[in-house]
Design a protein around this nucleic acid. Sequence first.
DNA 1: CTGAAAGCGCTTACAG
DNA 2: CTGAAAGCGCTTACAG
Lengths: 349, 349
Amino acid sequence: MDPSSASLRPREPRRGRRTAVTLSDVAAAAGVSPITVSRALNTPETVSEVLRGRINATVEALGYVPNRMAGALASAKTRVIPVIVPSLSNVVFVEVIEGIQETIEAAGYQMLLGSTDYDLDREAALASTLLGWAPPGVLLAGLRHLPRTATLLKNADVPVVEFMEYGARCIDMNVGLSHVRAGAVMAAHLLERGYRRIGFVGTRMRDDYRARQRYEGMRRHIAEVGGASDILFEYPWGPGQEVGWHALADVLAADPQVDALFFANDEMAVGAVLRAQRDGIAVPGRVAVAGFNGLPMSALVTPALTTITSPRKEIGKQAATMLLSRINGTPPVQRRIDVGFVLEARSST
Amino acid sequence: MDPSSASLRPREPRRGRRTAVTLSDVAAAAGVSPITVSRALNTPETVSEVLRGRINATVEALGYVPNRMAGALASAKTRVIPVIVPSLSNVVFVEVIEGIQETIEAAGYQMLLGSTDYDLDREAALASTLLGWAPPGVLLAGLRHLPRTATLLKNADVPVVEFMEYGARCIDMNVGLSHVRAGAVMAAHLLERGYRRIGFVGTRMRDDYRARQRYEGMRRHIAEVGGASDILFEYPWGPGQEVGWHALADVLAADPQVDALFFANDEMAVGAVLRAQRDGIAVPGRVAVAGFNGLPMSALVTPALTTITSPRKEIGKQAATMLLSRINGTPPVQRRIDVGFVLEARSST
DNA sequence: CTGAAAGCGCTTACAG
DNA sequence: CTGAAAGCGCTTACAG
């Protein structure tokens, strides 16, 4: 017996491997080389019309679906962009995401969505995993991250846009609005209308630092102007409307001096208005109510809700546009964009 | 001159390639073979404690991030599961997605989210692209797809769960509820309370066939029972509350006989209730209002809204669980699950 | 316009 | 417990 025969025995195909149609299968069936098939698919104009037709027909006939991983590995290019947000159950992030999705899909990219549930450790883990897909860029919410997340992203050497709030220090690029200023503007509005004991109602204030920034902005403004006081109410997390619904009654019982409430978002503020309606509490007579975000619903309750509108979809579009221009080698016009906000003074204050 | 010298010249590195830290770099730095590094990372128990420690330290020191594409290509395994939904701006899908995310992340998988905007052509394109990432399974909303989408998914030879509605024919596995029955149940409720001219208000009824199924269920039930009539109102798409807000007044003007309205979802129904409040239209005295989904908000308006609660997060969890069990080789207990629904009869009807 | 060779960064058997 | 060889399915230069 030839002792080398064992090593000449053909190997078993790797276990569990799916026998999908491959580029070479198409090439063989069409009577061309694999590379020509690759070109017919990726840069059709570089292949003669005859071959192109034959190849496309074969692709159809065999139901060939290119393996993106092989392609991405060989070309060192992916068209999948990770987007990291704290939460999907908050409409605000969903609208930003829609802006991102529209923009990057139009440019032929896809979105890989990750949600951190407001946990910075999860954010770090997500960033690490997602970078393993060698993305052309990264979009993530917020300017506050763990040091190792920032290091990871800087080392990755890809464009990064941090969106949602606008601030002085960012990893690479930034688009959003100043939540501190938003809080101050709302405080100014409430003071101007004569309210003197102003409460801020939020949930998860430890993690939701943007809400905390709005509170800070409000607090500082009130302190600077003088003649009025503020108070912070933190509520356990729950569906916005339910939180607002319960908070209204509890707050008025706990601190009867309160004459205005600035809620962390419109959902909560709407819940408060609905509760006031049911219990016959006069808004703004007994207590003024204000929200944040400018959701359509805020205009429909009675009384219509005073709120601050943030251009959420616009934030998403701008973030994606900045990222894409950097991916394509043309630096964006600005590295940091303040999209601003609008105070909608309505009848609830 | 040696004419062969040209071909001996070392090649340039491929253009654009990022010089990231690679598995071999770690191996060289740690003084072991690449495969040992791979094992230390993926199956730590198969590597001696000494080497494991040295390798982990080197990984840290070099900031190594494994290239998932190379890994996936070599092992023919990905841990990214595509999830295809019609829309992200509908809370309902977001809650299903949250259920999916929680479940698959706990099992070490990630979600690749695609939104079709209720367009079946986009769905087909998405399915094709996402299958190119050789996923271990696919989750998609709905039972209605283009023939080529179904073919694609069947040929891919991976487990597939269609979620949202429950029905007789599915590609592979199915979890959801019967929207036809939900419509019939609501019709029965409205008839029982004495309403005789029942309107259904929806948007995008051509694409949102689940809403259409609810209308069909309602219509047929009314026809079967007799003594009452139905009418369908279709409204241009927009934010739910705004649509309901406008619809209420328009419908009552267009068809004054209408004494009950079943809206395609709670947002619209809430909008209608808010409009009724503002304009002093008695609900349910002048017109009864019902919604669908059982959002928290439905219980907070005055009058509280009659609606049908669907277990959305549960649908996501079940869908993910079924998929995972098939991925792991253990067929799920059931291939089709009807999660049911609950009628919440409240004071708006 | 078309193709043969090399390589992307990993993992899988197989062998010690 | 550790390693040398082969291969996953593509694309990139280079050469005709």
